[in-house]
């Protein structure tokens, strides 16, 4: 069991470390990461989301509790982060960073680990789990950061309307719902051929996104505001997956779906939260520190939590 878990997690976290090393030693200089991150966020991530969600059977048996728990995990993150921010007397800008980091989990790491753990079988649930979480989380983080600056809400709606992740998710949901009606017009083979460039671009590039995740780690940002940093990491990497595990038990979700829900919602925060924080002039330093800490704690907590689901 230990070896199986290590085999799943080791390559992904080595690539994260590789990304950190490439940036730390300037093998890929700072200025050149901008293009790589832009390609990731605007193209590769939407590609992988589109093909995964478009192929998901959102109407399959047992999908409703999985969809509900995926959305419930984000609701839990929102409630916990707002509650803790109030308890810690965090400023509005600090609260926005805490909410964003707690609500957004790293979808690419999830797809990579799900594939390594369950192979093709993981595709039965990955799209179903990703859809509600990502749509909700994207709306929450944009509203959270936009709400902290004057005129931010005016900027929030156009930002949401042009958000590549949100657009990809919504288009893919539409495609997933239309998919069963297509065979009379287009054969399954034709649709697969049409999706194949997005498949190659998206799934082939999972490693690149992990490398970028590592390149974005900022250990200098871990200094100061320790309570907020650890609160974010504790909510993101411990409280939410444990809550999801309990929720899965209550809703009767088990097997692959249960493991994948924990793997998804217990993952570290996504690097694109930092990009949104920058766009809305948010607490970028604090956000970078929180993301870094969630990655470090997830590297230990996520394999343990995954092992727990496999044992149960």
């Amino acid at each position: 069991m230990t070896l199986q878990i290590l085999a799943v997690f080791f390559p992904a976290f080595v690539l994260v470390a590789l990304g950190y090393a490439l940036r730390r030693w300037q093998i890929i200089p700072d200025g050149q990461w901008r293009g790589i991150n832009l390609l990731n966020y605007r193209v590769l991530l939407p590609c992988v989301l589109f093909v995964t969600i478009a192929r998901a059977d959102l109407m399959q048996a047992g999908a409703l509790p999985v969809l509900a728990l995926s959305a419930g995990g984000i609701a839990l993150a929102l409630v916990l982060s707002l509650g803790m921010a109030r308890l810690l007397k965090a400023s509005a800008r600090e609260t926005a960073a805490l909410v964003a980091v707690c609500c957004v989990w790293n979808v690419v790491l999830f797809f990579t680990l799900a594939d390594r753990l369950q192979g093709e079988a993981s595709l039965q649930w990955t799209g179903t789990i990703a859809t509600p979480s990502l749509v909700l989380a994207t709306i929450i983080i944009v509203m959270a950061f936009a709400g902290t600056r004057a005129g931010g809400m005016r900027k929030a709606l156009p930002a949401l309307a042009t958000d590549p992740v949100l657009i990809a998710c919504l288009l893919a949901v539409a495609a997933a719902l239309v998919w069963p009606l297509l065979p009379p017009l287009l054969s399954a083979e034709t649709v697969e051929t049409l999706l194949s460039p997005l498949d190659l671009a998206g799934y082939g590039s999972l490693a690149l996104v992990l490398i970028c995740m590592g390149a974005g780690l900022d250990f200098a940002a871990l200094k100061g505001r320790i309570r907020l940093l650890f609160t974010a990491a504790a909510i993101r990497s411990l409280a939410i997956p444990l809550g999801v595990l309990a929720g899965a038990g209550a809703l009767g979700i088990d097997g692959n779906a249960q493991t994948l829900l924990v793997l998804a919602l217990g993952g570290p925060s996504a690097a694109f939260v930092y990009a949104v924080a920058t766009e809305f002039d948010g607490e970028t330093g604090l956000t970078a520190g929180m993301i870094t800490l969630t990655v470090l704690i997830s590297a230990i907590a996520l394999p343990v939590l995954t092992a727990l689901t496999l044992l149960s």
Binding site: A7, L15, L18, L39, A201, Y203, G204, A207
Partner: peptide
């Protein structure tokens, strides 16, 4: 093994990026 798996995962990203 783990080294081969890591290289495999990293290498898979090369072709789409080069084609782009």
């Amino acid at each position: 093994g783990p080294v081969a798996d890591t290289l495999d995962l990293a290498g898979r990203a090369s072709l789409p990026l080069i084609l782009l």
